[in-house]
Design a binder for these strands. Structure first.
Lengths: 351, 351
DNA sequence: CTGAAAGCGCTTACAG
DNA sequence: CTGAAAGCGCTTACAG
């Protein structure tokens, strides 16, 4: 029934129904509908049906109204080409909860890329504003853009803890501090007394949280922190051995692969001589593609990041945020998977 | 520098710079910038920088009328929970090309479900209209809804060939007719003279296309069509054997699994006594979950459905459709994978 | 050569 | 009780 010219507008409907455009809007929004004659109302609704009218989200949004659309922004592609599927469990939760809450999801793919990365601000404009609010996702992120988002008070939730100097950021993260502490406690309970941490120089939130958890646990047992840098796994491993370390917490499974690969050369057997625990899931996208044999064959001792739940809660938090603009932070617990790379120490260390 | 109220507008910048709002817009867009005094220009740009102005995409898009949003509608969840990931390769192509063409993607998750399925029409209104046009995806589809979409001339492209009595549907599909013909030719070339087709009673487009391709090939070689119904694989297999069939085209890998499972009982070895070719990819979502051992272990002879390309072209066709409303149909070629379940016949059949 | 005015589609306060 | 008018932020045709 639509004229060929694409979209039906309220003005067109109004003309057909013989009323003013404002009346059409009122009939649609219903709230003040009592004031409109039932006949007028019916006539308008008739035309609305005949023409197949739907609101233009731009117009509505411009007026400051919600469209029931949540944005999903990722710095990389959402649907990756490799086996690596970092986003999937998050998105699964996001989709599930968006459906539950009655929101559509808008994936921001329009912007093109700079330096191989997507951008939130394109020529100075915030693309996310099409949506009512947005979920941000991904390990990479641009602190500048985050700061700007905060400054313009755009409602968004980061999946993963993030901080910004401009103000509090809403996030739903995994509680790395607590999980790392628990891993330390577990190893301590197994009898380990020299527990080390293999970390990176890069100081993003996940790394800092793991280190904080580790140091808190070490402090609790009045042990000096034994932190090694993972730049060269062989060197780090030798250092750890020389320090008498019997259990090593490792930031990522990729790192752990590196350690495992040279453990033999250093004369260490895992877990007999050295327990290895990965502080997180085996993240498939981190696996070096060069290695044909997937390291997933190793049943790593580790903790699991509740990615699906994080997605679900990110949507919930965002929806709350839309109702009441006030930053929210939520950390979800990780669960320890005992795996096969950690065991009690063979020789109990002297206290 | 922004006032607490969130956003800086062109009007605010104009006031600060002592010019009209239109001039600010012109300075920003640059095209007609020659007409503006260099001093005015500089002053405006100064204020723009100081205030940290960013364009509101809403206003701009409203002016241009296009939202640059493509819908993606699936009757099931886009991000599935199981290993089964039917949509992924399509979505990969869709995302890639949407990015190329400068469109955002809207996933329709708001509608809730009826009978476990999503719906396009919710209370008589077409939800897809929020987007400029939409891609439809999925094996399941509601003919009624399709018919209605066609009738209201909503721009959409189906991934996979579809037909509707109400009018031509735009689609990007895989050319099952040609692919099935090619498989037949290939088997004929190997020496097979009694080539059968294992099909289903359900008459959807993919099934009909495969049958059409098969029958065309059989006709070409003046052979009667040998079509068996897959309701009971054991019975079908016996029938085929009794008919002297040496090669069997099978609609899906799930069906092929069934055949393979009872081939031994019927006294047939694959491919020595019977060649089996799957008319399509092993579709993971079709695998029966009960079987612990994945049938992907079998290196099926088959043809590959160009899912990624179909996604890419669906976006292209939709974008063209938006420019010029006129239905388009596109079939992409499949490629044969020779695999391990087809070979030359052991005893050449009499002509 | 310049800048004010119209209008994109919408909602709501406000005048009749 | 009703409906016309203002305005959200923007671009561009058009009048001065």
């Amino acid at each position: 029934m639509t004229a060929g010219s694409g979209r039906v507008t309220q003005a067109q409907v109004a003309r057909l129904a013989g009323v003013s455009q404002a009346v059409v809007s009122m009939v649609l929004n219903g709230s003040d509908s009592l004031r409109i004659t039932p006949e007028t109302r019916d006539r308008v609704q008739q035309v609305l049906r005949e023409t197949g009218y739907t609101v233009d989200i731009m117009g509505r949004r411009l007026r400051g109204k919600s469209n029931q659309i949540l944005g999903v922004f990722t710095y990389e592609s959402v649907f990756p080409s490799g086996v690596a599927d970092f986003y999937r469990p998050f998105l699964l939760g996001i989709e599930e909860e968006a459906e539950q809450q009655g929101f559509d999801l808008l994936l921001f793919t329009s912007g093109g890329r700079r330096d191989g990365r997507r951008r939130i601000y394109e020529a100075g404009t915030n693309r996310l504003r099409i949506a009512d609010g947005s979920i941000l996702l991904g390990r990479h992120n641009d602190p500048q853009e985050l700061a700007q988002l905060v400054e313009e008070q755009f409602p968004f939730v980061f999946v993963g803890r993030r901080e910004s100097p401009t103000g509090p950021i809403s996030y739903v993260g995994a509680d790395y501090v607590a999980a790392t502490r628990e891993v330390h406690e577990w190893l301590w309970g197994l009898g380990h007394r020299r527990i080390g941490l293999l970390s990176v120089t890069e100081e993003n939130e996940p790394t800092l949280d793991r280190r904080a958890g580790y140091e808190a646990a070490a402090r609790k047992h009045r042990r000096p922190p034994l932190v090694f840098l993972a730049d060269d796994p062989a060197i780090a491993l030798r250092q750890a051995r020389d320090e008498g370390v019997t259990a090593l917490l490792v930031e990522s499974s990729a790192m752990a692969d590196g350690i495992l690969a040279c453990a033999h050369d250093v004369g260490l057997t895992v877990p007999a001589d050295l327990s290895l625990v990965v502080l997180g899931d085996a993240d498939p996208s981190q696996q070096p593609h060069a290695h044909a044999v997937p390291s997933t064959a190793t049943d790593w001792s580790m903790f699991r990041i509740p990615r699906h739940e994080m997605g679900v809660h990110a949507v919930r938090v965002l929806v709350e945020l839309l109702r009441k603009p006030q930053s929210r932070q939520l950390l979800l617990p990780c669960t320890i998977h005992e795996g096969a790379t950690a065991a009690g120490p063979s020789t109990t260390d002297s206290r």
